[in-house]
């Protein structure tokens, strides 16, 4: 655990700011239809908060936060949430991604659409976040193999 070479200003500053950036990303996802943003932008911000910890403290320590082996499966889960919601609406007799046809009981069509968009955006956000972290990890480790 070689952390002595890191400057405390960078590491502790990153740890102070990173939770707020992550919460801001979640805010962008959850408020996608009142303000600009949505799944993709929120996912980019979520990934940014994880990458801030990776950049500041090294991959070894920050893999405590998101394990490298988890990025691909969680990204796949994100895509499956998106695709599954669309396919479910298709199977229930609507079009693909027709939120009105989702089989959630006790909701008016307006709220059904709202819920559908929210589920889709969570899926997109998860996929974008995990793929971005995956790209960073691949780039970081590929560099070590060359040397």
């Amino acid at each position: 655990m070689k952390t002595g070479s890191e400057s405390p200003i960078i590491v502790l500053g990153a740890r102070l700011l990173s939770p707020f950036i992550m919460l801001f990303g979640l805010y962008v996802i959850f408020h996608g239809h009142y303000s600009p943003g949505g799944g993709f932008q929120g996912g980019a911000l979520l990934a940014a908060s994880v990458l801030l910890m990776r950049v500041a403290s090294g991959t070894q320590i920050s893999s405590l936060m998101v394990k490298e082996s988890l990025t691909t499966p969680l990204g796949v889960v994100g895509v499956l949430i998106y695709f599954g919601t669309g396919l479910l609406a298709f199977l229930m007799g609507g079009d693909f991604l027709d939120y009105g046809a989702l089989p959630i009981p006790g909701l008016s069509p307006e709220y059904l659409r709202y819920t559908g968009i929210l589920i889709i955006e969570i899926g997109v956000g998860l996929a974008v976040m995990m793929v971005m972290i995956l790209l960073y990890d691949k780039m970081a480790t590929g560099e070590e193999e060359v040397e």
Partner: peptide
């Protein structure tokens, strides 16, 4: 509804940062 979203989001953030906060950098 929105405060509920907030509580869920803060829960997610705190789960993500659980082990980072337990780790002593120095």
């Amino acid at each position: 509804l929105h405060i509920g979203f907030g509580v869920i989001s803060i829960g997610t953030v705190m789960v993500f940062f659980h082990s980072i906060r337990r780790h002593a950098f120095f």
